[in-house]
Design a protein around this nucleic acid. Structure first.
Lengths: 351, 351
DNA sequence: CTAGTTTTTGGAAACGTTTCTAACCTTGGC
DNA sequence: GCCAAGGTTAGAAACGTTTCCAAAAACTAG
């Protein structure tokens, strides 16, 4: 039908009314009932929808919220994407995606050009990691409201979405204790990672409450959070006596846990019969692995909606002040954990 | 520094030059060297980047390519997203995401409002499935260039990205034949699905070339492509003699294959020792499953770049004509396939 | 019926670009 | 030294909105 989309001018003509009147009617201003009816009829006859681009240009904003992460394919990222999209769709706001990396490397100037040319109103950085400082400078330069989703450090203003990793560690420990495990090993992500440290802290705290320890000789830190680190962890667990004594292992994240699973099974051991395995994150892959993975899941979906909402409604406030939101992690019990092998469940202190 | 982003007017003032001149210089028009230098200096001093919104408004387009799928979290979708994003970033074009579903149901009018208010220049529908006709009507109404990524049917104009599922079926068959399998079972997706039919056709064709058959009593069709269908498939394989004779099974897609894997292993059988398993799609989960999954992967990344490129460069052509691109699938051999159990590898004809 | 008050409406400016047209400045040939 | 031709630059209009301000219309009250 409509060759090119109808404009407000056409609506005005058809309703025999001034352009400004159409705008007023559509934005809830006052108008006589007769005019309102005429305008609305013209609108529906023409199938008119205001051009957001023109509207936002006039209003001095872009109506765009940016979402940027190191990779657009990480599970975290896509969940956030879905959650924010559904929230934003109701608010005439669009979501623009940017990858922080070009050809595998962080590219600050590409991000800067992107922010500037789109004039994004707000932006959410997903797991900014080591780039956080550079990104903060960028956001400051352009006075953009910004949300950091699971940052490692802490910015001075903006919205910080953090996960209660310590609580998550406690939950993992509680679960394993309830199953009867007494000796637990921890194969963390990078030692410098705040997340890993907090998870370990939670584990230790909860174990201590049960009179148990998680000694340093049963903790190990990987160079990264990749699947390969889980493979190495498995080799260590298989080969080293002080680790092998553990009847349950907690891995730095799900990717590592999946690697661990594979390697251990390749050695003809069974999970959870020979060893119980717990991961962190709650990635979808964990549901389909064999055995499916017990994990401490991040509350990503809830975060997504809150990020969208706050970035929309508290934009002004976020420009100057700091808002920190912490979310509880949630234990998801699946098949990779069970009571320890009978016999190894001695009443020892675990040292 | 810059409170609000610099505009072309400020650049013009700083360079003591008219606004139109700045625009000309920046867009490669002719200008004296002295002026060029002055303008460029002003641009870099102010950190000026043109506002894409204003630019596109004037140019009568939006500079936005839409990407819409039933769910924004499907593996297919995210790969496409990443691929298109990196391609588009070089072309001053942004990608806008929309979900075709609101609260789990297809919502045509939401999609229409979205298309219209954003004035998207082109749009890519990912696996439109049963909504394809409605979406085609929409695209026609607004005269938008449109790409259908893996459609079930075929539109009259636009870009059709299809995968050579028949060839994929042939590859799967060839692989299993090479390993020594003679009796193969097929657990497809919905019988009405074109993809499933083509995959089956490819399997049959290749087997026929080897003098073998894939008889109807060793094929089964699921109601959908979900994991649960794979579970049911496994139960059928386990229970029914004519299926159980097969030393290798081909599933409708990876999700089903993963379900099959889990169920069979839950019955204390080993993959691939007791049965070889092949999936379709190449989802990331298949890499981390145990055993990792042999699959016939979709060439998603290549598609993504082509979709972006064609939607950008051949926009006009796509408005009236039909372009069909077919992509080869690629066999990815992992752990879930091996030679059949010795003894069952008789020289029979497979009937 | 008039004057005052309120409500409704239309006109114009503005947002930040690009492009068209016309004016200006150089240059070179005579 | 003049004129034409060429290249370079400035000015204005346009894209589709919203909003401000003033004009017009509709009431209200005296």
């Amino acid at each position: 039908m409509a060759q090119s989309p109808a404009t407000i001018v056409q609506v005005a003509e058809r309703a025999s009314v001034a352009v400004s009147t159409v705008s007023r009617v559509l934005n809830g201003g006052s108008a006589s009932l007769a005019v309102q009816a005429r305008v609305r009829r013209a609108v529906s006859e023409l199938g008119y929808q205001p051009s957001l681009a023109a509207r936002n240009l006039k209003l001095g904003r872009s109506g765009i919220i940016g979402l940027a992460g190191a990779t657009t394919q990480a599970p975290w990222f896509t969940v956030l994407l879905g959650g924010m999209e559904s929230k934003l769709a109701e608010h005439r706001t669009s979501l623009a995606i940017a990858s922080l990396e070009r050809r595998g490397r962080f590219d600050g100037s590409a991000v800067e050009a992107w922010i500037q040319s789109r004039r994004v109103d707000s932006i959410a950085f997903v797991r900014p990691g080591e780039n956080e400082r550079a990104l903060t400078r960028l956001a400051d330069r352009y006075k953009i409201a910004v949300a950091y989703v699971l940052p490692e450090y802490e910015a001075r203003r903006g919205l910080i979405i953090r996960a209660d990793n310590e609580g998550g560690g406690r939950q993992a420990a509680a679960h394993l204790l309830a199953l009867g495990h007494r000796r637990i090993a921890f194969f963390g992500g990078p030692e410098a990672s705040v997340d890993t440290q907090n998870r370990l802290l939670g584990l230790r705290t909860r174990l201590a409450e049960a009179g148990l320890e998680l000694p340093a000789h049963r903790t190990w830190f990987a160079p990264n959070y990749e699947l390969g680190s889980g493979i190495v962890a498995a080799d260590i667990w298989l080969a080293q006596r002080q680790f092998r004594e553990a009847t349950a292992v907690v891995l730095g994240n799900d990717a590592m846990a999946l690697g661990f699973l594979r390697r251990v099974q390749a050695h003809s051991l069974s999970v959870p019969r020979d060893v119980s395995v717990v991961g962190f994150d709650g990635v979808p892959e964990g549901e389909f692995s064999f055995p499916s993975l017990t994990t401490v899941a991040q509350p990503t979906h809830a975060c997504a909606e809150d990020v969208a909402q706050l970035l929309l409604e508290s934009r002004a406030a976020l420009l100057s002040s700091l808002v920190v939101r912490s979310y509880d992690l949630q234990l998801v019990v699946r098949e990779s954990t069970s009571p320890p092998p009978t016999g190894s469940n001695s009443g020892g202190t675990g040292n």
